[in-house]
Design a protein around this nucleic acid. Structure first.
Lengths: 132, 132
DNA sequence: ATGGGTGCAAATCCTTTGCATCTGC
DNA sequence: GCAGATGCAAAGGATTTGCACCCAT
């Protein structure tokens, strides 16, 4: 089913999936460029949107300066640095009651799709930096 | 303690607090303009940053196109429309285990500040629109 | 007179769009 | 030859910055 993807799309999906972090469009662009040097940034944006519309990747609203993309489409939570905007996956599961989520969705009229927990604070790097 | 705020800051804080929704910088600008017609957009941005640095309001990463501000500084969760970017407060509390949050923070090295649950899906308006 | 706060305009950054070209069929 | 995909450059929108000015001290 993924054979729908053309060469560029495939390369971009690979780039997002192989990235250790949550790459920005520019990160993806630079990474893909090594494989397809003539690709344009606009194409990267176009294809990132398509992939996320198809659910193959997730676009996460801006935590700091610009959008980041996530290759991991199954549920997981995030830790976000309020100082530098770093975005980290939380490697363990935070329990949520499905009951409550459904109730929350109903209360707001939302047709429940996905959900996540976000924790905010200063990351290790920023803690060090501040204490200098 | 809030007397530190000058007239513009006070007007901006009021604007954010009296807004029913989560206003964008532009929303705030337009609202404040009715009281202080000569204020500039840049000043609004500058003061919004200050207020949020002081913890009097919260700046929430871009859910869709631009940053929104939240006057409610105590913990609450959000419902976000994946189609139009609407951002709604969830009027009920979703339980989270502090244990798990602390563990998550520790696992990522984050100095735990705040946290929120986000649920994503289509809002009522977008559900209607789609079914036309 | 001095310094911080402010308005205005220009600059910046991320993202999208227009359009002519290229590609595979 | 056509339709869709793409590169490039220009446009767009949000936010920031530079700078001269103004006000309160």
């Amino acid at each position: 089913m993924e054979d729908i993807l053309n060469t560029n799309a495939r390369a971009i999906l690979d780039a997002v999936q192989s990235s250790q972090k949550h790459p920005t469009a520019l990160d993806v662009y630079e990474s893909v460029r090594q494989v397809r040097p003539r690709i344009g940034l606009a194409t990267v944006y176009r294809i990132l949107h398509q992939l996320s519309a198809q659910g193959l990747i997730k676009e996460m609203g801006q935590a700091s300066d610009c959008s980041r993309y996530d290759a991991c489409t199954n549920r997981h939570d995030h830790a976000i640095c309020t100082e530098c905007g770093a975005l980290l996956d939380i490697p363990l599961e935070i329990q949520l009651s499905m009951e409550e989520l459904r109730a929350a969705a109903q209360a707001t009229g939302l047709e429940l799709g996905s959900h996540e927990v976000r924790i905010y604070g200063r990351c290790t790097a920023c803690q060090t930096r501040r204490n200098e």
